[in-house]
Simulated scan of single mutants.
Amino acid sequence: MVKNVAYLTPVALNFAVGEEVPEWVQLLPAAPHVIGRDGRRWHMFDPSVVVSRFDPAKLPQVDIEHSSELLAPQGMPAPAVGWIEALDVRDGAIWGKVSWTGVGRDYVASRAYRYLSPVFRHTQSGEIIEIASAGLTNNPNLEMAALNAAQYEENVMDPAILEALGLKPDSFCCRRRCGDQQPERQRAHCAQCCANP
Rank of each mutant, 00 (worst) to 15 (best):
E153M: 13
V25W: 03
P159A: 02
D106A: 15
R175I: 09
H43S: 05
V89F: 03
N196C: 13
S68T: 09
K58I: 08
W83E: 15
A164G: 01
F54K: 03
N155Y: 04
K58W: 04
E65R: 14
S117H: 09
T123V: 07
D158F: 01
I64K: 11
Y115C: 03
I131M: 04
F120P: 03
Y152C: 00
I84V: 15
P73Y: 07
K97L: 07
Y113Q: 05
L71A: 07
I129Y: 00
C173V: 14
Q61S: 06
V49I: 15
W24D: 09
P60M: 12
A188G: 01
V50T: 12
R187G: 00
M44G: 04
R176L: 08
P60G: 14
F172V: 13
A134D: 06
I131V: 13
I94T: 04
E184G: 03
S171L: 05
A78K: 08
A109Q: 08
A31Y: 12
E143V: 11
I128G: 05
M144R: 08
G92N: 05
D63W: 02
L59S: 12
R175F: 05
Q192D: 03
S52I: 08
N196Q: 09
V49E: 10
L27Q: 03
M76P: 00
G126Y: 11
T9D: 15
A188H: 06
Y113E: 09
P183R: 01
R121C: 12
G82D: 13
Q192E: 10
L13I: 10
E65C: 15
M44N: 01
A30F: 05
S125K: 14
W95N: 02
G75C: 12
K168T: 13
C178H: 01
R177F: 08
G126Q: 13
E154Y: 15
N141P: 02
D46R: 15
T101S: 11
E184C: 10
I64S: 01
A72N: 12
V50W: 06
R37Q: 14
K58R: 15
I128F: 02
